[in-house]
Amino acid sequence: MNSLSDRIQLAHGRGGRLSLSLINDEIVPRFGKGPLDGLPDAATLGSISGDIVFSTDSYVVSPYKFSGGNIGNLAVHGTVNDIFVSGGSAKWLSIGLILEEGFPMSELQLILDSIKSSADECEVKIVTGDTKVVNKGQCDGIYINSAGIGEKIKEFNLSKSRLAEGDAIIVSGNVGDHGMAILSAREGVNMENGPVSDTASVRSLVLSICQCASKVKFMRDPTRGGVAAVLNEIVSGTKLGAALDSRKIPVSNGAGALAEILGIDILNVACEGRMILICDRCVADNILSVWKSFPEGVNASIMGYINNEAQRVILKTVTGGSRLVDLPAGELLPRIC
């Protein structure tokens, strides 16, 4: 057992001396400047000219470390991306930590470093937060909630009601990387250089297309349930459908290989650094070339078009036959049959 100071104790969450040392040693050095300075109970933020865009999400991924990142990167990118795909420019984040008694301090430091590096990369500030500690066994190491505030980007007018037949469906990069990275860490398929999580921000992808924002009708980040869940959600409740071409759906080698091995449909697998954008066909090629100039958009592809087959997502397969892309049932389970 390493020495006591190397592990989180219940006292770290009880507001006493140990809480203060945790904040002063680990939180202030990383996030201390700006609204967090002086540790007020709430952050006082500047005013915003446009509408406020607000989002929150909780992160309970297990294992909390995986190839390509950890729960800290996820907690920043997930909420920042939700704001950007809703047409907002993320500015401020809150971080709520729930730690299990005995959680190694070195692991917390690694995760806090990841939160800071991701926040800096997305040019957002961590402005407020909280830490609670629960008894050993009552949580799986670490859970994080993050909430974020952004300013509405005035050029964007996003709504399902604007969708029309012939609109292009663009995905910003390889699908399913994150979900497959988690599965390969969890299923003990003991994989080396298998799939790497795509956890990243879509900030530059959104800000780089503001000049044709008026022709952009809808944006979404395909997290849980992957591309299949997002597209079914988009066409539900409308008189429109979506038609995809399997040859135009980008899949990275590692994720594709593991999906074949475990018998999983990659369209149902979560991405954490991708976005799906639906726009008027006339600006599709322009957006594609802009995105391809960014590392996080190098595999961008027009994977299909909106059509009039109401509320169905159809995939044209390599045989020339088509199939329905349905909502995933839930748990991704490795299959033998």
Partner: peptide, 8 residues
Amino acid sequence: EADGAKAR
């Protein structure tokens, strides 16, 4: 190995 992904 397949497509760079290795397994035992």
